[in-house]
Nucleic acid binder design. Sequence first.
DNA 1: GCGACAG
DNA 2: ATCTTGTCGC
Length: 311
Amino acid sequence: MILPFEKMEAPSRCADRIGLSIPLPLIPNLTLLMNGWCFCCSKDLQSLLVFILVLLTSYLACRAQDLLKGKLIVEDDFTWIIPSHDSSSLEGFKTEKLKYIGGVDISFLKEDPSTACAALVILDADTLNVVHEEFDVTKLQIPYVPGFLAFREAPILLGLLDKLKHNAHPFYPQLLMVDGNGLLHPRGFGLACHLGVLANLPTIGIGKNLHHVDGLTQSCVRQCLEARENCDKDLIPLIGKSGNIWGVAMRSSPSSSKPIYISTGHRISLNSAIRIVKLSCKFRVPEPIRQADIKSKVFLQKFKGSAHLMK
DNA sequence: GCGACAG
DNA sequence: ATCTTGTCGC
């Protein structure tokens, strides 16, 4: 038997932070199965057993996502107002402005793809300058499986938010931008929704590639974006075969024809999400995500260097 | 039927 | 996600 039993502890520790409301003894199997995902195509006789476990795990993971989805809010639910250039739209009851936007991203080492550096950066919404940053380097035990990204990345990111909250930090973000989709997901519950629900924060999902859902493909979206009737538009809605609107593709930078994919995470409407993404875009990727991406890579390189010196 | 699938 | 190399334009 090649199944990695020694890896069974870490996921249970992660489980409560992920917020899984399925029987805890079953959780280790979740990771076990995901670890075994790649085996399901092998010709070993054991692959049958692994295949059954994969089915069970997928079922449990889907159930967890469905349960958490019950808490999802897809309308504006915040007390601040979105900074706007046309100052005519003053919303009378709300006085507080959006001041701090958070961004999260994770980088990996090519030498050891399980070593991950997570970054949480806080930007000033007006200047788009980084005012605070938070890092964590860990080994991720759960592999990436399309549709289940949150099980891999949510625990470490929630840890960073906790660290900030525990210190009663004045920079705790009012909004979080996530490098992963929100509603644009096979079950309408991507990483951005997952993080939003568990941290109880408004979140926006930003994808740099399209997760193929409901008949949508990268090529058909790009065709749509380059069509004559749309050549002056920089936003096209992502409407699937079912007629559902999953998010929008946005041409966020004139220098790049490749769009970004925006979807609602939690406690925000798609229109508000679009407004905020627009005002935080200096380049193709919105600044909070871009800064988190850059800083996590730099931190990981430094970490690698210092770890090497320790030997 | 097979392949496509956020990071 | 990760690696590469060069090229173009400000």
